[in-house]
């Protein structure tokens, strides 16, 4: 009966988006009159995992098989579906991510469950189980009834405001028997930028476009991002031109972000770009063209030259 939350571990701790999902799942559990259990796969200490209790979980199942160190889609989906069976869970919650969605999809097929992504609010249990999801890359929403006996809900960042407590969860080892075929896919190399704020997880994002003129000018973007503790992002032409790595590209055909603050410098605000950032809480636009379409989607705007404005903003942040 319990609600099960699939979480991801990064650097020995549960990811921020996963903790949001834990809180969401705990609220769902309250609505259903049951408890929330977390599944955590990978390396982390019990003390760290117990913090899931701050977000409302009563128990954490910890799967810490060394073969599960990489985000292996096949193996993770087997671990999750075995946890669902053990806990008798009906509702499975996770945070949207490229790994989470890929895992949840396979679990939906194993369990014959209804699956809905990009959920932006708590479910409505008044008549069946209904969720609100964002569609058309944030240009609209849909209210969807989940008809399966089991439901999988992938939650969008900032779907819910989290209230933390000081409760701790019980941590139990989870050691399911995995099949050889779960490890048929071999990861032969990992290339990950270290020490940066992860873009999909970030609360603050500083993004820049073709207005920056060339990759050699990105230090003014990075300086502001570092001063704020923000992640950096870019428009599609910037990653197409290889000025910035592809995983920074936001928009309709890139990463969709919904941070608290999105600062766009030298980006025109094409509809495909807006689609990926329009659910940000606050949008700031800096552009030398007062007619740039981005201003229509902005909360704060500055008409000016990025090469003048960005360094001044960095200075102002450092002076706080």
């Amino acid at each position: 009966m319990s609600v099960l939350i699939f979480t991801e571990i990064d650097n020995g701790a549960l990811k921020k988006s996963s903790l949001e999902a834990v809180y969401y799942g705990s609220e769902v559990a309250k609505m259903k009159g049951t408890t929330a259990t977390v599944l955590a796969i990978g390396t982390a200490t019990d003390d760290e995992l117990a913090k899931a209790g701050n977000f409302g979980a009563s128990k954490v199942l910890h799967a810490n098989d060394s073969r599960l160190a990489n985000g292996n889609i096949q193996a993770y989906s087997d671990v999750l579906s075995l946890a669902v069976t053990q806990e008798g869970a009906e509702t499975i919650i996770l945070a949207m991510s490229s790994l989470g969605n890929a895992v949840a999809a396979r679990v939906a097929a194993k369990l014959k469950a209804s699956i809905v992504s990009n959920v932006t609010e708590l479910p409505d249990f008044s008549n069946g189980i209904k969720v609100t999801r964002s569609i058309y890359t944030g240009k609209a929403f849909a209210k969807v009834e989940m008809r399966g006996e089991k439901q999988i809900i992938a939650v969008k960042k900032n779907a819910i405001s989290v209230v933390e407590s000081s409760n701790l969860a019980i941590v139990e080892p989870f050691t399911p028997t995995l099949k050889e075929s779960d490890f048929a896919v071999k990861v032969t190399g990992t290339h990950k930028a270290s020490g940066i704020v992860s873009l999909p997880e970030a609360d603050l994002v500083v993004s820049a476009g073709r207005g920056l003129k060339g990759p050699e000018n990105w230090s003014i973007v990075e300086d502001l991002a570092n001063a704020l503790g923000a992640a950096t992002a870019c428009s599609k032409p910037v990653s197409d031109l290889d000025w910035r790595p592809h995983h920074e590209h936001v928009g309709q055909t890139g990463i969709k972000v919904s941070p608290n603050l999105y600062i766009a410098a030298g980006i025109s605000g094409a509809i495909q770009h807006l689609a990926g950032v329009n659910s940000s809480k606050v949008i700031v636009v800096i552009n030398k063209d007062p007619e740039a379409p981005f201003f229509k989607a902005a909360d704060y705007g500055i008409v000016g030259d990025v090469f003048d404005i960005l360094p001044r903003l960095t200075k102002a942040v450092k002076a706080l």
């Binding site: 889609i73 989906s77 490229s98 969605n101 890929a102 895992v103 949840a104 999809a105 396979r106 679990v107 939906a108 097929a109 194993k110 699956i115 809905v116 992504s117 990009n118 964002s134 569609i135 058309y136 890359t137 992938a154 309709q252 055909t253 969709k256």
Partner: peptide
């Protein structure tokens, strides 16, 4: 897909 943006059909098909 860019209409429903679910990002799950590949996983569902693989498992099926």
């Amino acid at each position: 897909s860019i209409d429903y943006n679910s990002g799950v059909v590949h996983g569902l098909v693989g498992e099926m």
